[in-house]
Design a protein around this nucleic acid. Structure first.
Lengths: 138, 138
DNA sequence: CAGAATCCCAACCGATACTG
DNA sequence: CAGTATCGGTTGGGATTCTG
């Protein structure tokens, strides 16, 4: 349904329904590896296709291609083809628009770090124990 | 795969692999309606179960229940049961932790708004036309 | 090196019906 | 009112194989 949401958001915007700003943003990095891809590109350095296959653990080329193409369609990254000797190479880098989304990723990174620290101190997962139960004020 | 990512991230954190901060954050609002739920709760006002079914277009109770429960497990929202007359009611509101993620949603909202304005001026979708093609510097 | 083309499965989601 | 239970459809993603 990820692709679905991207399409839905596009359609809504194209048909004049602009009430989906958060969803639009979210659709930029929905997809298994997009967050990772954008994150790796955030410094401005271009990255080759096969570099990604090494950087991202266990990604198939098909899925990687798909994620990269969607990011290109969304104008978040751009592709550059060139020849090196006689072997074709391709690199990807952020577009100007893509760069503007990085602060959000950094905020997400920071929030996650803080949350992890909290969880180290006071693990909360699978404890349906305390504070969050129904406060049943009958 | 949404539940899957939530579980994976949890497992990674519980097994001492803390290198997934962004993914943890993202897993907080992955799921079809979580963004919407958190957004509606951001002002601090509690919302009843059936209010959500009215606020969210075309959500089934099953899916809504699921999304709410995951948010509770993740300590983003909390549930409050009480009796009103002799009818059981339930409301949901943000936890303290849940409140800390709102600024990220607001950043996403703002980014989306800006992007929509850009697209109004210079529609970019489905034009694989110009700047983003391979810059083929052969 | 950088894909494209298939096949296939898991699981998210929707619709519907039932319960306390 | 606020759920639970069940069934079935859709699709993103993995594994594998084939090009230029």
């Amino acid at each position: 349904m990820e692709e679905d949401i991207r399409q839905k958001v596009k359609e809504r915007i194209q048909s004049g329904d602009f009430d989906c700003a958060k969803e639009l943003t979210m659709s930029m990095f929905m997809g298994k590896h997009k967050l990772f891809i954008l994150w790796e590109l955030r410094k401005g350095n271009p990255i080759h296709f096969n570099e990604f296959t090494r950087l991202i653990p266990n990604v198939s080329r098909k899925v990687l291609t798909n994620q990269l193409n969607e990011l290109i369609q969304d104008n978040m990254i751009k592709k550059r083809d060139y020849d090196e000797g006689n072997v074709k190479r391709v690199s990807y880098e952020l577009t100007a628009t893509g760069q503007t989304i990085i602060p959000i990723l950094e905020a997400m990174y920071q929030w996650g770090e803080n949350r992890i620290e909290e969880l180290k101190i006071n693990p909360h997962y699978q404890t349906n124990s305390s504070e969050n139960k129904g406060v049943t004020s009958k």
